[in-house]
């Protein structure tokens, strides 16, 4: 075994800063991937355990049910606001869809399809901001994007048999819910998370 090649003295003893700005940029660190995956699963688990919220809503019909759709879109806004990487919205929403599929959700494989549409909608909005805007407006618009994706999916797959005015109402309610719940509430949630200091390792600091 040869002994260590001696490092330069300045290297050896001077302070060296590592990883400055590693969280910025488009590269996904392991922690970015895992945090998005785990948060999306956490959302899925909570919404599953929270089922009493919509079990009675679905009895009131699709319009009432679509009031809470925004909740399902939260990962698509919250996760990108945390890791700030291209693809985060899409990845988060697909994972969320997988979770609800694994937990025996209503719609099965079709949730993946809707996950792609919803995540894709939010992703487009963040991409449009060149992945540089992460404020409340961007969040609300991302919620809007996800809501539009959701509305496109639902009006063509689930609610096709309903007349146009009914579908318009559903789409409208879904989009408004997406903006308010996923967008605005999602942004507020991330702000609250920041205050706790758990987001220190991510862009935007804590």
């Amino acid at each position: 075994m040869s002994s260590a090649s001696p490092a330069q003295p300045s290297d050896r003893f001077g302070p060296r800063v590592f990883g400055a700005g590693a969280e910025a940029g488009a590269r996904w660190r392991t922690v970015d991937i895992v945090v998005v995956a785990v948060l999306s699963v956490a959302f899925g688990v909570v919404f599953f355990l929270w089922n009493n919220v919509w079990s009675w809503l679905s009895g009131l019909g699709p319009q009432a049910e679509s009031i809470v759709t925004g909740v399902w879109l939260m990962p698509a806004v919250v996760c990108p606001l945390i890791v700030r990487k291209p693809g985060a919205a899409l990845f988060a929403e697909v994972v969320a869809a997988l979770v609800s599929m694994v937990l025996g959700s209503q719609w099965g494989m079709d949730t993946i399809l809707s996950g792609v549409l919803q995540g894709g909608g939010a992703e487009l909005v963040f991409a449009f901001g060149l992945y540089r805007s992460w404020g409340p407006l961007a969040a609300a618009l991302a919620g809007l994007g996800a809501g539009v994706g959701e509305a496109i999916h639902d009006t063509t797959v689930s609610y096709v048999a309903i007349d146009v005015s009914g579908r318009t109402v559903i789409a409208g309610v879904e989009i408004v819910s997406a903006v308010l719940v996923a967008g605005i509430l999602g942004w507020l949630l991330v702000q609250s998370l920041r205050r706790t200091g758990v987001l220190e390792a991510f862009p935007g600091g804590a």
Binding site: M1, S2, S3, A4, S5, A7, D11, R12, F13, G14, P15, R16, V17, F18, G19, A20, A22, R29, T30, V31, A201
Partner: peptide, 22 residues
């Protein structure tokens, strides 16, 4: 430390013939 968790490094640490910082 230091390649995954960010921070400031002083001195040297070697595992066998590998300098951790390098």
């Amino acid at each position: 430390v230091p390649h995954v968790l960010p921070g400031t490094w002083w001195g040297r640490l070697a595992v066998g013939d590998l300098e951790v910082a390098e």
